[in-house]
Amino acid sequence: MLTITQWHEQALATKLDDRSLLLRTSIYKTVHAGGRGHIGSAFSLIEILRVLYDDILRYQPQNPQWIERDLCILSKGHGCLALYALLADKGFFPRHQLNTFCKIDSLLGGHPEPKLPGVEWPTGSLGHGLAVAVGVALANRMKNRENKVFVITGDGEINEGSIWESALSAAKHKLDRLTVMIDYNKQQSYGPTKMVLDLEPLSDKWRSFGFFVFEANGHDIVSLHNTLLASEKEKGKPKVIICHTVKGKGLSIAEDNPKWHHKSKLTKDEIFAMQQAFNLVEN
């Protein structure tokens, strides 16, 4: 059992591979085109989405409403830059659309909406995704479907009381095809979660709410993948995977830095720092 500090050190030390750098490059280009974005919040999330979309979820990019698809709701909608990078990478929409980020007629807003192929739910206001996921998981069960449902929340997001209402309900209904993945980067907008509204002991909380609880290094592909596979074997309760991540992961000046939570404009120095960090990869 690792302590929260040990998990964080592991996440900080994890070296990113070329695919992870490529996805961050995609985000950098999107941000550069739009002139803004929740950069730190997206960089902490990439590996979680990457493993889901590479190895776990069933979906058809050319048929986003495919009835057999698994559902992935990015409840922390401000992390949408990472979702956009993955969806473009998988071919849900042409990659050049990333350059329209936040433009007046774009499908890619500062928070995601289902008008963009691949986005399942309009999120941005926090604390909504889990309730919706409970409804979808119940519907799947009523229709004898085996589709899985994933919800990705932020850590600050689970300050919201609605999350805990929904957690009670998910456990009551024994929704074992429902998995909550918490992007636990330990920084919210103002500062450390420990200071703003401490979540610890987080795994005990979810366990007491009736969930199977798992922890993973949220930047280590193998750790995430193995944890997801292990969680699939458990039956009779919903699952939560606490993903230990680093806000701004991959860009040293942004790591653990709440000032990178959201940038409404970027300085030349900041753009230069991103260019330097992500210039080795052809996109």
Partner: peptide, 15 residues
Amino acid sequence: SEAHIIGMAAGLAKS
């Protein structure tokens, strides 16, 4: 848990 119930209802409606 009204906030939850409306979200859950929306999820059911979407399905």
